[in-house]
Computed example of a mutant assay.
Amino acid sequence: MTAPMAGDWRMPPEWAPHARTWMAFPTKGYTLGDTPAEAEAARRTWASVANAVARFEPVSMVVAPADADLARGLLDPAVELHQTDLDDAWMRDMGPSFVLSADGSRLGAVDWVFNGWGAQSWASWEYDAQIGRYVAGLAGAEVVTSPIVNEGGGFHVDGEGTVLLTETVQLDPGRNPGATKASIEAEFARSLGVDTFVWLPRGLTRDYDEFGTRGHVDIVATFPSPGVVLVHSQEDPDHPDHAVSRSLIDSLRGVVEAGGRTLEIVEIPAPATLFDDDGPVDYSYVNHLVVNGGVVACTFDDAHDDRALDVLRQVYPSREVVGVDAREIFARGGGIHCITQQQPALP
């Protein structure tokens, strides 16, 4: 579906050159867990992702003042720390979505309204709702204020005018009551410079549980290059996402993107692990971060890790693919893409 004319801002694709990656350090609440051991596991895993990204490009970590010394002890010395109050650590969602002016000369930062993934009962967002503007200021970006509730994990762009999104996120009554596809499309066109919308009906099964996002697309599908969509494929019929992923893949068949190409669908297998103590997992290799010269990918100590990393090498042939064990992140509701946010480089 094509929306109104795109605005003056454009969001580059993730594979475009980055100035840096932004993250936030776990500070409290469910992300740290209930025991010192769980807190330590969360902090070490976030730090492992930051240190992997720092091999390829600068990393800036936002950290609550009380956690600065802990963070410094776990992070590569090259990682910059910026101290301010935080509720949580999901930079993709609470942070800004960076954009460039149409001529590429100015950096902008879309500051979505953040309300804890649709005002979820367990979430707090007093401080996190301010992180978009805070990070924009540190980056020297012009703030592009958006009136809609949205998170960076709820969409993917190809940089040429196409956006992937899900009906259960942007149209969620807990986020944007009364919103229509037309109203969301108009705002995305204005703030992200997109004009072709690929609406998926839903996300993965686990994402609708208590600590889920209600359908973020960044564990379902992404664009690794123009005209290509990489899609999560659950091959085992014993997992409820077997039917879900087949339906999502079918919905993408024949879709024409902004450049006039019919999307080429590349399937990436779900991990062989099907369940944990809380039910069917939503482990996903789709939830990776593209960085300068590389890809930082989720692994799960799983029989399908090597297969999936090979698929990533095929769709990103000029980049080094590095895996980081993401099980501790997924246990808390997301993956590597969810805790990072890329800042594009100015030409």
Rank of each mutant, 00 (worst) to 15 (best):
144 V>H: 08
145 T>V: 14
145 T>P: 11
147 P>K: 12
147 P>H: 14
148 I>R: 12
150 N>Y: 07
154 G>W: 06
155 F>I: 13
155 F>C: 09
157 V>R: 11
158 D>Y: 04
159 G>D: 13
160 E>Q: 15
161 G>M: 09
162 T>K: 01
162 T>L: 04
165 L>R: 00
165 L>P: 00
165 L>M: 13
166 T>G: 02
167 E>D: 14
168 T>L: 05
170 Q>M: 11
170 Q>R: 05
171 L>S: 10
171 L>E: 09
172 D>E: 05
173 P>K: 11
174 G>M: 06
175 R>V: 02
176 N>I: 04
176 N>K: 03
176 N>M: 06
176 N>C: 11
178 G>T: 06
181 K>F: 04
183 S>P: 11
184 I>G: 03
188 F>A: 00
189 A>Q: 03
189 A>L: 08
191 S>R: 13
192 L>A: 02
192 L>H: 03
194 V>W: 00
194 V>R: 00
197 F>Y: 09
197 F>H: 04
197 F>N: 01
198 V>T: 03
200 L>R: 04
201 P>T: 03
203 G>P: 06
204 L>G: 09
205 T>S: 15
205 T>H: 15
206 R>G: 05
207 D>W: 00
208 Y>M: 12
213 T>Y: 02
213 T>W: 01
214 R>P: 01
214 R>L: 06
215 G>H: 03
215 G>A: 05
215 G>C: 06
221 A>I: 13
221 A>E: 07
222 T>F: 06
222 T>C: 14
224 P>M: 11
225 S>Y: 09
225 S>D: 15
226 P>I: 13
